[in-house]
Design a protein around this nucleic acid. Sequence first.
RNA 1: GCCUCGGUAGCUUAGUUGGUAGAGCACUACAUUGGUAAUGUAGAGGUCGUGGGUUCAACCCCCAUCCGAGGCUCCA
Length: 567
Amino acid sequence: MKKDLDTLRHSASHVLAQAVQELFPKVKLGIGPSIENGFYYDFDKKEGFTPEDLKSIEAKCKELIKKDIKIVKKEVSRAEAKKILKNEPLKLELLEDLKGEITFYEQEKFIDLCAGPHVESTKEIKAFKILSTAGAYWKGDSNNEMLQRIYGTAFYDKKEMRKYLFMLEEAKKRDHKKIGEKLNLFSFHEEGPGFPFFHPNGMVIYNALTDYWKEVHKKHDYKEIKTPIILNKELWLKSGHWDNYKENMYFTKIDKKDYAVKPMNCPGGILVYKDRLHSYRDLPLKLAELGLVHRHELSGVLNGLFRVRNFTQDDAHVYCTEKQLEEEIIKIINLADEIYKTFGLTYELELSTKPEKSIGTQEMWNSAENSLKNALETLKLKYQLNEGDGAFYGPKIDFHIKDSIGRSWQCGTIQVDFSMPEKFDLEYTGEDNKKHRPVMVHRALLGSLERFFGILIEHYAGKFPLWLSPVQVKIMNVNDEVLDYSNKIKEELEKNDIRVEIDDRNESISKKVRDAQNQKINYMITIGEKEVEAKKLAIRTRDGKIEFGVSIDKFVKDLKKEIEEKK
RNA sequence: GCCUCGGUAGCUUAGUUGGUAGAGCACUACAUUGGUAAUGUAGAGGUCGUGGGUUCAACCCCCAUCCGAGGCUCCA
């Protein structure tokens, strides 16, 4: 009988807790659930666990597993439960919130308040490993004390665990921070924590991304705008950011007056809309902006390009009538689909509806939610419904894309907004020659260019498709005799807008190939006497395929096709 | 911001009862002119994250601080 991993891992967390309490009797228990790829247990302990502690804990766990300890369920009264937990203050707190029947699971002297289920015996845990420690707030609230969390994983089968650990190793190899350094794409410096520096190679990719983005948006009838990074206090007061988002904003003074660095693009974009009178004939009006925003994120959350303090959002605001809303949503979803497909990324959709705290009438919400829902249904798309998870100003659709390691990232978002048009008194003149209020849709598809770049690095493991590659072709001369011809080939490729470099170092071909290979360059051209004589090329792909006697014209033609197709 | 761990050359790193640093890659020079993942030799490169303290003496011990990793929380 194959039981599910959640049950096994939950039991593994109990084994961990038993081991910790046997080794550290003073330690109090928090909670210990199973999670996606393993489990954790939170412990109330003043000092953290040292690496040595973890080793002895793991050894203890393995010992307990071998002992074949039966895990027994016990139903008890509330009074009994209190007695059992008299030395476990955190568990008592949990008991307070508990309704209905109270169950414990017992294994030897260890007993834990727990709803279950569990495996019958510790022996069923065939593979067990402690992975890491971390601090974690009690009940996830930063006002509470911090507990020591131990993460681990467990499997029914040793092979399965080996596979999982191998995957973790692979994930580490794809780490965009490491690849970014190796391929000389970007860097971070103490002089500006959380502010990325893009290097020439990184800029090639960044520019290829933005060029593509601009091209595809133009095709979909967006107009591009650019708004200032610094705007005055009054604007941010009006938009509500000054009151609601202050913690994350940077401020400055100009001529003794208060200004803020923009954390979002919308207020600036709205000023562009308001600068002219609009007719219903102008709608839908789609204003796009690759907008550089700054947000002060806590130092502990910064994480390479995934989480930075300044980034460029691929923002756009669609101003339209309520009637046009559904069709506009459909168009945005189609655009998102086109873009994600270009990168070979899959995605899942979530629809979030009216939260408890919200503005706007119920009618508006119903109409907006229906527009989003109808759009999804018209396109026959599967989605997850998150009731009450929308923004206070309107419902939204989120795109969660899957990266190479299976992690899910929220990239695209489509948000309907009733608030801003109201706050900024946006208008258009209708067919009836009366003023009407437009609906505003905020949308970003890549999310942030920086983070999307990071995701792409890991998605491709640094092996970028030709159209994104910083160096598309590396020319390698066998000896100095053929250097002139090699340079001619380089010029020829440059004439055709191919990003090409020549490796004319005094090194062996093997060495040059190895280096180019490590730089993950798409095509390597070796030039020796044979090539000079025949006026042909020897081409090696980064997958190790070699083709001799290729004409330059054919090579250029193939490259151009590959770039054009973005494969 | 909080918890745990870390920071030695551009990169990867060795360095224990405290006696002022060693390697590989990369870089430079010279030799070598070679055919698809590392040719050889030599050279240069370090105020051991930063600032204090203890000590005759600190990469090492103590304090503070900055930065990074993994989490918590947050989020594009």
